[in-house]
Amino acid sequence: MAQLKIDNLHVEIEGKEILKGVSIEINSNEIHAIMGPNGNGKSTLLSAVMGHPRYEVTQGSITFDGQDVLEMSVDERSRVGLFLGMQYPQEVSGVTNSDFLKAALNARRETPIPLFSFIRKMEGAVKELEMKSDLAHRYVNEGFSGGEKKRNEILQMMLLEPKIAMLDEIDSGLDVDALKVVANVVNKMVETSDIGLMIVSHYERFFHLIQPTHTHILIDGQIVLSSDASLVNRIDNEGYDWISKEFGVSIKKEERKQPTTLVSCAINTPRGSENA
């Protein structure tokens, strides 16, 4: 049985504190839903656990089966059994999906995986996810639609068989049918292995398909409320404002820079200016 334990985690990016003391435990066979308004730290939490170099852990601890995760490199975290299905999967030009997956599998084996086993494993996963059969020969995520990229993340999860998987908005970009396919695959993994899951999503529809055992609301870098699956329904019906009132937390709205337009430039230019 595996356990990912996050204790009082504080994380900064470029000197700005995003996570302000997050504590959570994910065990095998548990499905934790992480919800909250945009820009409040959900993706930061998952990226920090996986060790993205942009994020600096300033306080707190992360352990996996008692081992200090913060002392591990990114690849070590993967090899001990952590997986992150990313919100924006990277394109890696020139590297085929086949070569990429084979290298990833071989990184955690004593001897290279036999070719036939690999082909069988990969083709089986491609079929289950209803992806195009030429996936193996295409470059990693290059030319993939948003939905294909997300399915490719799940395909990697299937092949790498992690103990604890984190999925960051894996449902975004998926149409209704694709969502069902992905949910079926994830549920099958839950049934057939002891995998524990931490899933970030905004939408109740996804959590109807993959029933969480725990739900956490992350606002302004802290978990302000934890409950069971029923919390998902309440969020879907009422949003997050009631949390602000009941628990006295202020909800940080995601800052988006306004684009500069030609009109705004014209308005800002003083009359009589040589540059007008």
């Binding site: 490199s73 990114v74 690849d75 999967p89 290298a103 990184a107 790498l160």
Partner: peptide, 16 residues
Amino acid sequence: YYLQSRGMSRSESLKL
């Protein structure tokens, strides 16, 4: 980072 997150060392990732 993406390649390392799949278990490849930094050197293996750079080679790929």
